[in-house]
Structure formats: C-alpha cells, structure tokens
Design a protein around this nucleic acid. Structure first.
Lengths: 204, 204, 204, 204
DNA sequence: CATGAATGAGTGTTCATTCAT
DNA sequence: AATGAATGAACACTCATTCAT
C-alpha cells in the first residue's frame, strides 16, 4: 500500500498541477465572462487571468472551443455528482422525500453562483450534444429512481415516459425557480410547488 | 387623389421592401447556420446569401449582434403569436382542451423547422434578457388562461405559482418532446404525457 | 441693356444658388471639423450638415479631395483679398504704415475664427502646391509694395530677397501671434514687435 | 557576473530590436508616402514594407494615428537635437555666429531629405499640439541663447518677445529657404538674408 | 438637376494559434 | 514543459461614389 501510494505520489503532483491549471483556466473564463463580458473572453486574456502563459493554455486545450466544452462539462459533472449522491443517499426514502431532496440538491448546486448557469446557457456556445447528453443523464437517474419505487406508482405507467417528464420538469423548474420565479414567490414556495407537480404527475 | 395614391405607393413598397430585406437577412443567417456552421456566419457571407450588399445590411442592423437579437426576436414572436391565438381560439374550451391545444400549438410551431430551435438555443448567442422576457410572456399567457378558469381549480391555489409552473412545464416539455424524447415515445405519446402532467398538477 | 440684364438674371440666380451651395458645403466641413473632428468629415455627413443631398454635393465637387482644395482656396482667397486691398489702400502711405496695416489686416482676417487656420493647416490635407502658391502670392504682393518704395530702402538691396524674407516673416509671425504668442504678450505687443522686426530688416 | 551579463544581453537586444522595428515602421511610412502617395499608407502596407507582420505593428502602436504622431515626433526630435547641440557648441560664440550656426543647422537638418518635411507638413495629419509643442521648444532654446547674451542686446528689450520673434523667423525662413526661395536665390544667399534679418531685429 | 438608397472595395484591427527559445 | 513574441488570416464595418428614379 505504501509503495503504491509512493508510486502515485510522483505522478499525482503532476496530475494535480494539471488539474489545478485546467481549473484555473476554466475559472478565468467564468471570471472574465462575469466581469468583462463574452467578447473579452479571448484565449490570451484567459491565459493572463488564469496566470498561465498562452503557450501553456494550448498544452491543456487543443483550441478555444475545447475550453468551452470543458467548462460546460465541469458544470454538468458537478450537477451530476450532486444528483447522483442524492439518489444514493435516499436509496430507501419514500418517493416524495427523494424528489424533494433532488430538487433541493439541484437548487443548492446552483445557489453558490446563481448567475453562472444563465451565463453558461445564454452566452457560452455549447453544441447541442452537450445539452442532449445532460438530459439523457438526468433521464437515466430518474429512471433508476422510479424503477426501484415501482410499488409507489400505478403499474400501468411507462417508466420511460415518467422519467422523461420528471427529468425535464426538475431541470426546467429548478432553473426557473432560481432566476425567473415571480416576485412574491420564495425559493421554498417554488420547491413546494415543484415537488407537488412531480408527485401529482407520478400519482395521476 | 392620384397623387395621394402615388404617395402611398412609393411609401408602402419601401416598407415592404425593408421588411423583405430584413427577412432575407435573417433567413440567410439560418441557412448559413445549418449548411456551413456558426463560424461561417460572417456579416459579409450573410449579405451575400441574403442577396444584399454588405452596405445595405448595415443600413438595417447597427452591428452583427443586432442580427442575432432580431433572429431570436423573430422566433419568439412567432411562438408568441401562435400561443396567443390559441389562447383566444379556446377562450371557452375546458382547461384540458386548452392545454392540449397549447401543447399542440407549441409543438407544431417548431415542427416546420425542428432543428432551428436547437440551433438558436445552442449556437446563436442571446443575452439572458431575451430568454427572461419570453418566460415572462409565457407566464402571462398562462396566468390569463388560468384566471378565467378559476372554477376548474381549487380555490386555495395561488395563480402566480400555478402559471409559473405551467409555463415552465409547457416550454421545457415541448422542446424536450421535439428533440430529446426517448426512443419509442411518439410525439403523440409525449403530448399525452405533457397534458396529463399539467392537469395532474392543476388538479392536485 | 435690358435684354442683357435679363439674360444675366436667368443665369445669375443659378450661379448664386451654386455659390450658396458651395459655400454651405465648405461651411459644413468647417463646422464638422470643429464640432466632431476630422474623422467625422465624411462626404455624407458634409452633405447632411450642409443641407444638401449627397448627390448634389457630387454635382459641385468631383470628389472629396476637391472639397478640401476648395476650402483651402477659399481661405487663401480671403486673405489674398484683404492683403491686396490693404496694399491698394495704403498705396501712398509710408513703408512702416503700410507694413503695420498689412500685419493688422493679416491678424484681423484670422480674428473672426482664430482656430480655423490651425485646423486647416494641421488637420485638413492640402497638397504642397497650395502652400507654395500662397507663398508666391504673398511674395508678389510684398515685392510690389517694396518696389514702389525703393527710395525708402538702400539701393543695394535685392528686391526678391527682401520680399521673400518679408513675406515669410509676416505670415509666420502673424500666425504665431494669433495662436502661439507667449503668455503676457498681447496682440498689440506682438504687432509692434512684428513691424519693428520688418522695418529693422528693411533698413539694415 | 556572467549571469548578469547574460541578463543584460537578453534584454538589450530586445530593446534594440524594438527600436529597430519602430524605426522600420516609420521609415516604411515615409517610403510609401514618397513612392505611392498618402492614400497607399495603409497599416497593412506599412507592415509589409517595414517587413513586420501587421500583428507586430499593432504591438508597437495602438492605432494608425499613433504611427503618424510618432513620425512627427521623430522628425521634431531630430531637429530638436540638432538645434540643442548647436546651442551648446556655440555657447561662447558671438550672437551673429550662433544665429548663423542655428540657421545652418536647421537647414542642414532638412537637407538630407528635403521633400520629407513638406510631406510631413502637408500630407500627414498632425494634431495642432505637435506644432505648438515644437514652437515652444524652439522658443525656449532661443530664450536661453539670448538670455546669456544680454550684453549684446539693448537692455530695454523683453526676452520673451525677442525669442518669440526669433524662433518664428528661424523656423519659417529656413523652411521657406529650402522649398520656396525665389529662383535666383541660393541657399547661401538665403542664409545671409535670414541672419541679417535676425540681427537687424535684435539690434534695433 | 436633385435625390438618397444602394453599392462593395477596401480598411483598421483582432485574436486564435504557433514555435523558437 | 513553459514561455510569450510573432504571425497573418480573417473579420466587422465604413464611406466615397454611383445611378435609377
């Protein structure tokens, strides 16, 4: 065990440095995006703000688009991780508890930087693939969640249909709750409504 | 009288020409976007494909961004028109009929060019304002639709909450139905599920 | 006589209109130059400010450069006229009186718009010919002025040399007096010095 | 020691290279101006003729205007240097000798490229500031020159007035001598007249 | 003659990318 | 691996000029 950790150590620092550099670059993009707008997101400025040379930047990313892809991927992976761990944590909870937790997780995951998602969605180009891929992930997660709770659902319902609808509702309503909820509606209110809508559909 | 008609004649064609030119330019963007990709959408290429001179293009749009804004606006206005006329047409229909019609309208509005919406959403930069504005329009429409059907809803429900949820569900699920529905699910199936989800929520 | 006047009448209004239009155009250039800077002096803007159509502008000037040439010519002709009438007015004055009058005329000619000359000289392109031509005019004027006052000069002096020096001194010192005289020196002081310098040279 | 020399070596060449590149660019402007006319002076052509990439050109100059400013500044600095070293060289010469040397210096400074000055003055845009600044420099130089020769002047004379007049006379007459002297007048003749005029004024 | 919409060649400038050090 | 000066293709946009009405 020790030796294996040693073996890793000589490699890991490099990998860790790489990871840090990549993170620094992605963070730089976000920072520029917020402070100076999309037009200022040039590769040279990214490198400058990230504190690396433009040459190094191109060691980590083949071209500019790859940076945006990575940025979206990082965001999506973050959500993915949160969603997935919520799924596992509530493996044996009742359906409404699970859905509540899911909605909470989704909202909380965006709460540390509420404007970032808007920015990513509206300003940073992202091939349709990315969005589709994420939708499929979410679909899978909810399919899994619902499959193991078949007893709480009418047996006549098609699992694919249910998870398709649920996944879209969760994504759309959580984002809406964060940035477009009507004045007078709190985040708590929003969450209550979202879960109510989800449960109403699943029990219909 | 003659002269007054002349006066009109010389004006209207111009307005019509203007409108046509603007349309030609926006269509050109769409065509290039589909055939050559976003990177080929240069102002010179737009002008070329639209069959106008680059100078004329800049007589109609102050800069490149304005073209994208107009393109999004055109799309949103189209949807808006469709949604609104559906609302009016079904002024006296029952709620489920209205919602079914709304979903139909939304889907049909995208059906003539299914990939366009994806392209607009993912490739063409659009300030967050546009999206927010559209969300608010949709919210208003559904608020109106639900307000006049208070008797079909439990009186305890808050109209803003309801329309917030419904608007988001309709938008997200219709788009999802068009481009991300699971294999094996038809558009008809999707529509059925969407309406079922909407009604379940509203009746819950 | 009558008929000839008639003949003139039908023509003159046109010539007068032409002249007015040309003046309006040149005035527009000056106005734009002062208010918006040289970069804003475009043919379209000139036409706009002059209150004529761009098409008309090109009826009076073959191209943009011609406008600048005309503008310089107008200024130079103005000075020329002033200088020449001063020469005539003081045909029988003593030399120092004449020179004083010349300096006065030169300065007064610029006094109604002191910054215009700077602008013309520094911002508006003017082929070297224009400057040379003006220098020659001035040279001629002073040659004439000095020739008829040979008795006030030492006979040994070469008239060309004298007028060359005098012409340059007058031009340079008058412009300098207007825009670059040291703080504490009034225009009157400047004039006194200029005349003193001229007379000293001529009597040396 | 070695390393410190290395440190210097790697720096100095860069500074020298920078200077050389800037010079190459300014020289390119002059060359194009003479050979192809002002309209051909485009940034891309400048870069081409200077043998640098357009990108590099923009590393040295923020925009096109800055190139013209630098070009004028280079010329003015050259004159300035010549004038100043003449002043120092003749620190203890008599006034007429000094003025003669000044006129010589001024003329010689333009003699290597007589048409350049005309071109700069007539074709290359130059904010009035540049001219004013140069005039002030010249004024200062002559103020200094005259101040230390108070004994050669009548004590009643105001130093500012004298240097104002002298500076303008030198500049204007030297330029005139170079490009507008009457036929039959040699450069030597011109110089004689200029010095005579200067001395006459100062002794008057 | 007047108009001003239309033209499109040509410009200044940017910025993704490379590569010698 | 890191650097960052250098590159130059490509772009958005302007504006002098034309010509159909």
């Amino acid at each position: 065990m020790k030796s294996s950790r040693r073996g890793l150590r000589t490699r890991k620092p490099r990998q860790r440095r790489s990871r840090q550099t990549v993170e620094a670059i992605l963070d730089a993009v976000v920072r520029i995006l917020k402070r100076e707008g999309f037009d200022s997101v040039t590769t040279n400025r990214i490198a400058e703000v990230a504190g690396v040379s433009i040459g190094s930047l191109y060691q980590y990313f083949p071209d500019k688009k790859a940076i945006f892809v990575a940025l979206h991927a990082r965001h999506l992976e973050h959500i993915d991780r949160v969603i997935q761990s919520t799924l596992v944590e509530h493996a044996s909870s009742r359906l409404d508890t699970l859905l509540g937790a899911m909605v909470d997780a989704m909202i909380e995951a965006h709460l540390d930087d509420p404007e970032l998602y808007e920015l990513l969605a509206t300003e940073v180009p992202h091939g349709a693939d990315g969005a589709k891929h994420f939708a499929e992930r979410l679909h899978s997660v909810f399919r899994l969640a619902l499959a193991s709770r078949a007893q709480e659902l009418k047996e006549s319902r098609d699992l694919d249909s249910l998870s398709f609808v649920v996944a879209h509702m969760v994504e759309s309503l959580c984002h809406g709750a964060l940035s477009r909820r009507p004045p007078g509606m709190s985040l708590r209110d929003a969450k209550t409504q979202i879960v109510r809508a989800l449960m109403a559909y699943l029990r219909a």
